[in-house]
Amino acid sequence: MTRALGQHTLRIVSELGDFAVFTTRAFTAAVGSRKLGRRVLRAIYEQGVRCLPVIVIVGLFTGLVLGLQGYYVLNRFGSEGLLGTLVSLTLVRELAPVLAALMLVGQAGSALAAELGIQRNSEQIDALETMGASTHAYLISPRLIAALIVFPIQTTIFALVGLYGGYLSGSVLLNLQSGVYWSAVHNAVGPQDVRECFTKAAVFGLLTIAICAYNGFNAHRRRTSTGARAVSASTTRAVVFSSITVLAADYVITSLLVNQP
């Protein structure tokens, strides 16, 4: 029992170390890599443009629900005028970075893990290694750089669409004056909130895409499955670990930033 626990702990520590080396190598390998810009643009397209519809749809419904729930709760205290404050702070500080990251993990992250897993299975990554190319510079670095650009943009879009959703349910459906709603939004959101939102988006982007890339890239190292099952298991693991990491990192960042002026 103790031995098994020790072995399990060692395996986790070893994998965390391996993950740290993997991510660091991806950034260092990017220096001087040819046609990196083109690959970053392609990754931005995959993570950004292709994921935009889902971000807009989820953002809109999140805002609609927040507007509805918030209106009826605030109405009990006669404070409907604070609906804009509630929707904007909830979205900017928490829901936009977290939900946008979870949506991006579900779409771009899972696709990345599966693509790398298939490339590993079909020896495409081995081919890159035998020709002396840096697999990290070619496959991983562009995705990580793109994530640092795309996640904050997608989070901003999510928050803006969410705010509009809150306006639709609060003002258009429930007749709260639009001026009251938008002025509450304007007064509530400060630079600190925006900074917290972007910090979270960038950290979530880096962590989730690195986790998804790591799992797909190392699909062949799975002990319990091989071939197509290994790709499927790696993709599932990538999505589950990324989602948990988003929530855990959200707590850590919030606890570090919440009391800052």
Binding site: Q119, S122, E123, Q124, D126, A127, T130, M131, G132
Partner: peptide
């Protein structure tokens, strides 16, 4: 060695 050597994979391993 990698610079001076090439490897032709059984599966071809072309980037699809």
């Amino acid at each position: 060695f990698r610079r001076r050597c090439s490897y032709l994979f059984q599966s071809n391993a072309l980037l699809d």
